[in-house]
C-alpha cells in the first residue's frame, strides 16, 4: 500500500499525502502565506515523507495543481512536481486547481444544482469556473472581474474578496467559503476519481489564462529589418 503526494501552489503552498486505495487524507501541510512557495514547498514534502515513512520512489504518483493561479507561485509547484517525478520515476498527474475548490463544495450538506468557484487572480480579477452538483465542470476556466460572474452561488476566496461586487451582479457569495483556497487534499480527491474513471492526467502544462503582458515597443515595430 502506498500514497500519492499532492502539491498545489496556485495559491498558498499546499502539500498532502493521500492513501492510494482509500483516497483518504493521511496528512497535509499548508502555508499561511501566499508568497513563500519557494521557501516552504520542499520542506513540507520532506516533513510529510519523513513523518509517514514514505519513500519518494515508492509513491503511487504525484498529483499537481496546474492552476490557474498567480504565475510565479504556480511554477514553483509545477517544476518541483516534475522534478520529483523525474528523479523518483513515478507518474505526475496534472489537475486544474479550481477543481480542488469544487471538491470542497461537494462536501457540504446541500450542494447547489449549479455553482461557481472563484480564486484570487489579483489585478482586481478572479479565476473562476462553473460546476454542476455532480462536480462536473460546465464552464470555464475563465479570468475576469467578479462582476462578470453568473448569478449563482459563488464559493472560494474570490467570493470573499469580492462579496460586494458579486451581490451587486446578482451572484450569491457563500460566506462559509470565504477563506477557501486550493487544497492539495481536495485536489488529490479529484485526481483519484478522474484516474479511476480512466481519464488521462499526464498533461502538466500550466493554465496561465493570461498572456505574458509583454508589449512590442513602438520603436521595434518601426525598426529596420
Amino acid at each position: 500500500m502506498s500514497n500519492y503526494l499532492a502539491i498545489d501552489t496556485s495559491a498558498n503552498a499546499s502539500v498532502a499525502l493521500v492513501d492510494e486505495t482509500t483516497g483518504l487524507l493521511v496528512d497535509k501541510r499548508v502555508s499561511s502565506k501566499g508568497n513563500d512557495q519557494t521557501e516552504t514547498l520542499s520542506a513540507y514534502v520532506k516533513e510529510l515523507l519523513d513523518t509517514h515513512g514514505q519513500k519518494g520512489q515508492d509513491l503511487a504518483g504525484i498529483i499537481v495543481g496546474v492552476g490557474p493561479g498567480p504565475f510565479t507561485g504556480l511554477r514553483v509547484g509545477l517544476v518541483a512536481a516534475r522534478t520529483f517525478g523525474f528523479v523518483w520515476q513515478v507518474p505526475v498527474h496534472g489537475v486544474m486547481s479550481l477543481h480542488a475548490l469544487a471538491e470542497q463544495v461537494l462536501e457540504s450538506s446541500d450542494v447547489p444544482a449549479e455553482f461557481v468557484v472563484a480564486s484570487d487572480a489579483r489585478r482586481k480579477e478572479v479565476y473562476w469556473a462553473r460546476y454542476d452538483n455532480s462536480g462536473t465542470m460546465v464552464g470555464g476556466p475563465h479570468v475576469s472581474a467578479a462582476s462578470a460572474l453568473p448569478a449563482m452561488p459563488v464559493f472560494g476566496v474570490g467570493a470573499g474578496i469580492y462579496a460586494e461586487q458579486l451581490e451587486e451582479a446578482g451572484a450569491k457569495p457563500m460566506p462559509e467559503s470565504f477563506e477557501w483556497i486550493a487544497d492539495a487534499g481536495f485536489l488529490a480527491r479529484r485526481a483519484l476519481s478522474d484516474l479511476a474513471g480512466g481519464k488521462d492526467l499526464s498533461d502538466t502544462s500550466p493554465q496561465y489564462l493570461r498572456e505574458s503582458d509583454a508589449q512590442i515597443p513602438a520603436f521595434m515595430k518601426q525598426a529596420k529589418a
Binding site: Q37, T38, L41, S42, K46, R75, V79, F84, V87, W88
Partner: peptide, 19 residues
Amino acid sequence: LAGALMVGVSAAKALALAT
C-alpha cells in the same frame, strides 16, 4: 530576475530532496 530564479531554486530543492 525573481520569477526566473524561483523556477531554478524550486527545481534544485526538489532535486536535492529527492536525491
